[in-house]
Protein backbone atom coordinates (compact mmCIF):
# COMPACT_ATOMS: atom_id res chain seq x y z
CA UNK A 1 0.00 0.00 0.00
CA UNK A 2 2.83 2.38 0.83
CA UNK A 3 4.24 1.57 -2.56
CA UNK A 4 1.13 2.77 -4.33
CA UNK A 5 0.99 5.92 -2.23
CA UNK A 6 4.62 6.64 -3.01
CA UNK A 7 3.90 6.08 -6.66
CA UNK A 8 1.04 8.54 -6.51
CA UNK A 9 3.30 11.13 -4.89
CA UNK A 10 5.87 10.56 -7.61
CA UNK A 11 3.23 11.13 -10.27
CA UNK A 12 2.27 14.36 -8.51
CA UNK A 13 5.89 15.51 -8.57
CA UNK A 14 6.25 14.67 -12.25
CA UNK A 15 2.99 16.47 -13.03
CA UNK A 16 4.23 19.61 -11.33
CA UNK A 17 7.55 19.45 -13.10
CA UNK A 18 5.95 19.01 -16.51
CA UNK A 19 3.41 21.73 -15.82
CA UNK A 20 6.17 24.11 -14.76
CA UNK A 21 8.09 23.39 -17.92
CA UNK A 22 5.06 23.85 -20.17
CA UNK A 23 4.02 27.10 -18.51
CA UNK A 24 7.54 28.47 -18.49
CA UNK A 25 8.05 27.73 -22.17
CA UNK A 26 4.62 29.01 -23.18
CA UNK A 27 4.99 32.31 -21.36
CA UNK A 28 8.59 32.71 -22.44
CA UNK A 29 7.79 32.84 -26.14
CA UNK A 30 5.74 35.95 -25.50
CA UNK A 31 6.92 39.08 -27.20
CA UNK A 32 7.98 41.98 -25.04
CA UNK A 33 10.89 42.58 -22.72
CA UNK A 34 10.12 42.35 -18.98
CA UNK A 35 12.98 44.71 -18.21
CA UNK A 36 11.43 47.35 -20.43
CA UNK A 37 8.07 46.84 -18.78
CA UNK A 38 9.64 47.43 -15.39
CA UNK A 39 11.51 50.56 -16.35
CA UNK A 40 8.72 52.09 -18.36
CA UNK A 41 8.54 53.51 -21.80
CA UNK A 42 11.12 56.25 -21.52
CA UNK A 43 13.95 54.21 -20.06
CA UNK A 44 17.23 54.40 -21.92
CA UNK A 45 18.86 51.40 -23.50
CA UNK A 46 21.71 51.07 -21.00
CA UNK A 47 19.34 50.97 -18.05
CA UNK A 48 17.29 48.24 -19.73
CA UNK A 49 20.42 46.25 -20.51
CA UNK A 50 21.64 46.56 -16.93
CA UNK A 51 18.35 45.35 -15.57
CA UNK A 52 18.26 42.47 -18.03
CA UNK A 53 21.63 41.40 -16.75
CA UNK A 54 20.46 41.76 -13.16
CA UNK A 55 17.30 39.74 -13.81
CA UNK A 56 19.31 37.06 -15.55
CA UNK A 57 17.37 37.53 -18.77
CA UNK A 58 20.52 37.12 -20.84
CA UNK A 59 21.04 33.57 -19.64
CA UNK A 60 19.99 30.70 -21.91
CA UNK A 61 16.39 29.60 -21.51
CA UNK A 62 17.27 26.29 -19.77
CA UNK A 63 19.25 28.01 -17.08
CA UNK A 64 16.43 30.43 -16.49
CA UNK A 65 13.97 27.57 -16.23
CA UNK A 66 16.12 25.73 -13.66
CA UNK A 67 16.53 28.93 -11.76
CA UNK A 68 12.79 29.47 -11.70
CA UNK A 69 11.95 25.84 -10.94
CA UNK A 70 14.37 25.60 -8.01
CA UNK A 71 13.02 28.92 -6.84
CA UNK A 72 9.55 27.37 -6.89
CA UNK A 73 10.77 24.53 -4.68
CA UNK A 74 12.01 27.11 -2.19
CA UNK A 75 8.73 29.08 -2.49
CA UNK A 76 10.61 31.84 -4.31
CA UNK A 77 8.74 32.84 -7.43
CA UNK A 78 10.59 36.04 -8.26
CA UNK A 79 9.55 39.64 -7.92
CA UNK A 80 6.37 41.01 -9.44
CA UNK A 81 7.16 43.37 -12.30
CA UNK A 82 4.32 45.77 -11.61
CA UNK A 83 4.05 45.63 -7.85
CA UNK A 84 7.69 45.24 -6.90
CA UNK A 85 6.83 42.69 -4.23
CA UNK A 86 7.83 39.01 -4.09
CA UNK A 87 5.30 36.98 -6.06
CA UNK A 88 5.17 34.31 -3.36
CA UNK A 89 4.15 36.93 -0.80
CA UNK A 90 1.37 38.28 -3.05
CA UNK A 91 0.04 34.80 -3.74
CA UNK A 92 0.30 33.80 -0.10
CA UNK A 93 -1.90 36.72 0.96
CA UNK A 94 -4.48 35.88 -1.68
CA UNK A 95 -4.72 32.22 -0.76
CA UNK A 96 -6.18 33.26 2.57
CA UNK A 97 -9.19 34.43 0.60
CA UNK A 98 -9.44 31.90 -2.22
CA UNK A 99 -8.88 28.72 -0.24
CA UNK A 100 -11.47 29.51 2.47
CA UNK A 101 -13.87 30.60 -0.27
CA UNK A 102 -13.50 27.31 -2.12
CA UNK A 103 -13.64 25.39 1.14
CA UNK A 104 -16.87 27.06 2.31
CA UNK A 105 -18.37 26.45 -1.10
CA UNK A 106 -17.48 22.79 -0.82
CA UNK A 107 -19.08 22.54 2.62
CA UNK A 108 -22.18 24.31 1.34
CA UNK A 109 -22.35 22.06 -1.70
CA UNK A 110 -22.23 19.04 0.61
CA UNK A 111 -24.80 20.23 3.12
CA UNK A 112 -27.18 21.33 0.37
CA UNK A 113 -26.54 18.72 -2.29
CA UNK A 114 -26.33 15.48 -0.37
CA UNK A 115 -29.56 15.80 1.68
CA UNK A 116 -31.44 16.83 -1.45
CA UNK A 117 -30.09 13.76 -3.22
CA UNK A 118 -31.11 11.51 -0.33
CA UNK A 119 -34.59 12.99 -0.05
CA UNK A 120 -35.12 12.67 -3.78
CA UNK A 121 -33.96 9.04 -3.76
CA UNK A 122 -36.16 8.15 -0.80
CA UNK A 123 -39.15 9.61 -2.60
CA UNK A 124 -38.23 8.27 -5.96
CA UNK A 125 -40.69 9.02 -8.75
CA UNK A 126 -42.89 11.05 -6.45
CA UNK A 127 -43.64 14.73 -6.85
CA UNK A 128 -40.92 15.82 -4.43
CA UNK A 129 -38.34 13.87 -6.40
CA UNK A 130 -39.23 15.53 -9.68
CA UNK A 131 -39.41 18.92 -7.99
CA UNK A 132 -35.97 18.60 -6.45
CA UNK A 133 -34.47 17.27 -9.67
CA UNK A 134 -35.92 20.18 -11.63
CA UNK A 135 -34.34 22.50 -9.08
CA UNK A 136 -31.06 20.68 -9.59
CA UNK A 137 -31.35 21.12 -13.37
CA UNK A 138 -31.86 24.84 -12.89
CA UNK A 139 -28.99 24.98 -10.40
CA UNK A 140 -26.66 23.48 -12.96
CA UNK A 141 -27.91 25.73 -15.74
CA UNK A 142 -27.61 29.15 -14.07
CA UNK A 143 -24.19 30.67 -14.76
CA UNK A 144 -22.67 31.03 -11.28
CA UNK A 145 -21.43 34.57 -11.87
CA UNK A 146 -24.96 35.66 -12.75
CA UNK A 147 -26.41 33.87 -9.77
CA UNK A 148 -23.85 35.74 -7.67
CA UNK A 149 -25.00 39.07 -9.06
CA UNK A 150 -28.62 38.23 -8.38
CA UNK A 151 -27.72 37.24 -4.81
CA UNK A 152 -26.01 40.59 -4.37
CA UNK A 153 -29.05 42.45 -5.64
CA UNK A 154 -31.30 40.61 -3.23
CA UNK A 155 -29.24 40.26 -0.07
CA UNK A 156 -26.98 43.28 -0.30
CA UNK A 157 -28.86 45.90 -2.26
CA UNK A 158 -32.51 45.18 -1.40
CA UNK A 159 -32.20 43.69 2.08
CA UNK A 160 -28.86 45.20 3.18
CA UNK A 161 -28.01 42.03 5.06
CA UNK A 162 -24.68 41.00 3.68
CA UNK A 163 -21.80 42.90 2.11
CA UNK A 164 -21.18 42.86 -1.65
CA UNK A 165 -17.71 41.51 -1.06
CA UNK A 166 -15.61 44.04 0.78
CA UNK A 167 -13.26 41.51 2.30
CA UNK A 168 -11.35 42.71 5.36
CA UNK A 169 -8.39 40.61 6.42
CA UNK A 170 -9.07 37.77 8.86
CA UNK A 171 -7.02 39.12 11.74
CA UNK A 172 -8.56 42.57 11.40
CA UNK A 173 -12.16 41.47 11.75
CA UNK A 174 -12.82 37.76 11.62
CA UNK A 175 -16.62 37.96 11.62
CA UNK A 176 -16.65 40.59 8.88
CA UNK A 177 -14.28 38.51 6.78
CA UNK A 178 -16.57 35.52 7.23
CA UNK A 179 -19.63 37.54 6.34
CA UNK A 180 -18.06 38.81 3.15
CA UNK A 181 -17.50 35.23 1.97
CA UNK A 182 -21.10 34.07 2.50
CA UNK A 183 -22.65 35.23 -0.76
CA UNK A 184 -19.65 34.35 -2.95
CA UNK A 185 -19.49 30.84 -1.54
CA UNK A 186 -23.22 30.32 -2.11
CA UNK A 187 -22.82 31.44 -5.72
CA UNK A 188 -19.85 29.16 -6.16
CA UNK A 189 -21.53 26.21 -4.44
CA UNK A 190 -24.83 26.20 -6.32
CA UNK A 191 -23.90 24.24 -9.47
CA UNK A 192 -21.74 21.83 -7.48
CA UNK A 193 -24.54 21.25 -4.97
CA UNK A 194 -26.91 20.52 -7.84
CA UNK A 195 -24.45 18.05 -9.34
CA UNK A 196 -23.90 16.36 -5.98
CA UNK A 197 -27.64 16.02 -5.48
CA UNK A 198 -28.01 14.33 -8.83
CA UNK A 199 -25.11 11.98 -8.25
CA UNK A 200 -26.26 11.12 -4.74
CA UNK A 201 -29.74 10.37 -5.97
CA UNK A 202 -28.53 8.22 -8.84
CA UNK A 203 -26.15 6.17 -6.74
CA UNK A 204 -28.82 5.62 -4.09
CA UNK A 205 -31.36 4.57 -6.68
CA UNK A 206 -28.76 2.22 -8.09
CA UNK A 207 -27.91 0.79 -4.74
CA UNK A 208 -31.56 0.33 -3.82
CA UNK A 209 -31.68 -2.39 -6.46
CA UNK A 210 -28.67 -4.09 -4.97
CA UNK A 211 -28.94 -7.37 -3.09
CA UNK A 212 -28.10 -6.14 0.37
CA UNK A 213 -30.85 -3.53 0.25
CA UNK A 214 -33.32 -6.21 -0.78
CA UNK A 215 -32.12 -8.29 2.14
CA UNK A 216 -32.56 -5.35 4.46
CA UNK A 217 -36.05 -4.78 3.21
CA UNK A 218 -36.86 -8.43 3.60
CA UNK A 219 -35.88 -8.00 7.24
CA UNK A 220 -38.73 -5.54 7.57
CA UNK A 221 -37.14 -2.16 6.97
CA UNK A 222 -39.11 0.28 4.85
CA UNK A 223 -37.57 1.44 1.59
CA UNK A 224 -36.64 4.77 3.18
CA UNK A 225 -35.01 3.17 6.18
CA UNK A 226 -33.11 0.72 4.03
CA UNK A 227 -31.74 3.47 1.85
CA UNK A 228 -30.82 5.55 4.85
CA UNK A 229 -29.11 2.81 6.86
CA UNK A 230 -27.35 0.90 4.16
CA UNK A 231 -27.51 2.83 0.95
CA UNK A 232 -26.04 6.15 2.06
CA UNK A 233 -22.99 4.56 3.58
CA UNK A 234 -22.25 2.76 0.36
CA UNK A 235 -22.81 5.83 -1.75
CA UNK A 236 -20.25 7.84 0.22
CA UNK A 237 -17.27 6.29 -1.51
CA UNK A 238 -18.07 7.41 -5.06
CA UNK A 239 -19.12 10.79 -3.67
CA UNK A 240 -15.69 11.19 -2.09
CA UNK A 241 -13.85 11.03 -5.40
CA UNK A 242 -16.23 13.48 -6.89
CA UNK A 243 -15.78 15.88 -3.98
CA UNK A 244 -12.06 15.98 -4.61
CA UNK A 245 -12.62 16.82 -8.23
CA UNK A 246 -15.23 19.37 -7.24
CA UNK A 247 -12.85 21.11 -4.90
CA UNK A 248 -10.43 21.48 -7.78
CA UNK A 249 -13.16 23.04 -9.88
CA UNK A 250 -14.21 25.28 -7.03
CA UNK A 251 -10.67 26.60 -6.76
CA UNK A 252 -10.75 27.39 -10.45
CA UNK A 253 -14.25 28.82 -10.15
CA UNK A 254 -13.07 31.38 -7.59
CA UNK A 255 -11.35 33.19 -10.46
CA UNK A 256 -14.74 34.14 -11.85
CA UNK A 257 -16.60 34.66 -8.60
CA UNK A 258 -13.90 36.88 -7.12
CA UNK A 259 -14.48 39.22 -10.02
CA UNK A 260 -18.22 39.43 -9.36
CA UNK A 261 -17.66 40.29 -5.71
CA UNK A 262 -14.69 42.42 -4.88
CA UNK A 263 -12.59 39.86 -3.13
CA UNK A 264 -8.80 40.12 -3.11
CA UNK A 265 -8.22 36.46 -3.95
CA UNK A 266 -5.91 34.59 -6.26
CA UNK A 267 -8.37 34.89 -9.14
CA UNK A 268 -8.45 38.65 -8.89
CA UNK A 269 -4.66 38.69 -8.69
CA UNK A 270 -4.32 36.63 -11.86
CA UNK A 271 -6.87 38.79 -13.61
CA UNK A 272 -4.99 41.99 -12.81
CA UNK A 273 -1.62 40.41 -13.53
CA UNK A 274 -2.82 39.49 -17.01
CA UNK A 275 -4.24 42.93 -17.72
CA UNK A 276 -0.99 44.54 -16.61
CA UNK A 277 1.07 41.90 -18.43
CA UNK A 278 2.97 41.05 -15.31
CA UNK A 279 4.12 37.71 -16.65
CA UNK A 280 6.28 36.78 -13.70
CA UNK A 281 3.21 37.09 -11.53
CA UNK A 282 0.97 35.27 -14.03
CA UNK A 283 3.46 32.42 -14.21
CA UNK A 284 3.70 32.10 -10.45
CA UNK A 285 -0.03 32.31 -9.88
CA UNK A 286 -0.86 29.69 -12.53
CA UNK A 287 1.66 27.18 -11.23
CA UNK A 288 0.32 27.63 -7.70
CA UNK A 289 -3.21 27.09 -8.99
CA UNK A 290 -2.13 23.89 -10.73
CA UNK A 291 -0.17 22.82 -7.69
CA UNK A 292 -3.23 23.12 -5.48
CA UNK A 293 -5.49 21.33 -7.94
CA UNK A 294 -3.03 18.47 -8.49
CA UNK A 295 -2.35 18.21 -4.79
CA UNK A 296 -6.04 17.78 -4.01
CA UNK A 297 -6.39 15.19 -6.76
CA UNK A 298 -3.51 13.29 -5.22
CA UNK A 299 -5.01 13.43 -1.74
CA UNK A 300 -8.29 12.11 -3.07
CA UNK A 301 -6.56 9.22 -4.81
CA UNK A 302 -4.62 8.34 -1.68
CA UNK A 303 -7.70 8.60 0.54
CA UNK A 304 -9.53 6.37 -1.90
CA UNK A 305 -6.82 3.78 -1.70
CA UNK A 306 -6.86 3.87 2.08
CA UNK A 307 -10.62 3.46 2.25
CA UNK A 308 -11.35 1.04 -0.53
CA UNK A 309 -9.78 -2.37 0.17
CA UNK A 310 -10.40 -3.58 -3.38
CA UNK A 311 -8.28 -0.80 -4.78
CA UNK A 312 -5.66 -1.55 -2.18
CA UNK A 313 -5.29 -5.03 -3.50
CA UNK A 314 -5.02 -3.80 -7.02
CA UNK A 315 -2.59 -1.03 -6.13
Amino acid sequence: MFGSILRRILIFAITIFVASLVIFLLLDILPGDPARFILGINADIEAVAALREQMGLNLPIWERFWHWFFGLLRADLGISVTQNVPVAELIGERLFVSLPLAFFALILAIIIGIPIGIIAAQNRAKFIDSFLMILAQIGIAIPNFWFGMLLVLLFSVKLSLLPTGDFISWNEDFAAALRSLILPSIALALPQAAILARIMRTSLVDISNADFIRTARAKGLTKKQAIWRHGVRNAILPIMTILGLQFAFLIAGTVIVENVFYLPGLGKLIFIAISERDLILVRGAIIILILIVSFIMMLVDIAYQLIDPRLRLRG
Partner: peptide
Protein backbone atom coordinates in the same frame (compact mmCIF):
# COMPACT_ATOMS: atom_id res chain seq x y z
CA UNK B 1 -4.95 12.72 -19.41
CA UNK B 2 -5.11 13.06 -15.65
CA UNK B 3 -2.84 16.03 -16.04
CA UNK B 4 -5.14 17.64 -18.58
CA UNK B 5 -8.07 16.88 -16.31
CA UNK B 6 -6.47 19.10 -13.70
CA UNK B 7 -6.89 21.99 -16.15
CA UNK B 8 -10.42 23.26 -15.80
CA UNK B 9 -11.19 25.48 -18.79
CA UNK B 10 -10.54 28.58 -16.74
CA UNK B 11 -6.90 27.71 -16.12
CA UNK B 12 -6.22 26.99 -19.79
CA UNK B 13 -8.07 30.17 -20.62
CA UNK B 14 -5.85 32.17 -18.31
CA UNK B 15 -2.72 30.83 -19.98
CA UNK B 16 -4.08 31.31 -23.49
CA UNK B 17 -5.33 34.81 -22.72
CA UNK B 18 -2.00 35.74 -21.17
CA UNK B 19 -0.26 34.72 -24.37
Amino acid sequence: NDFLFAFPAIISAIIITAI
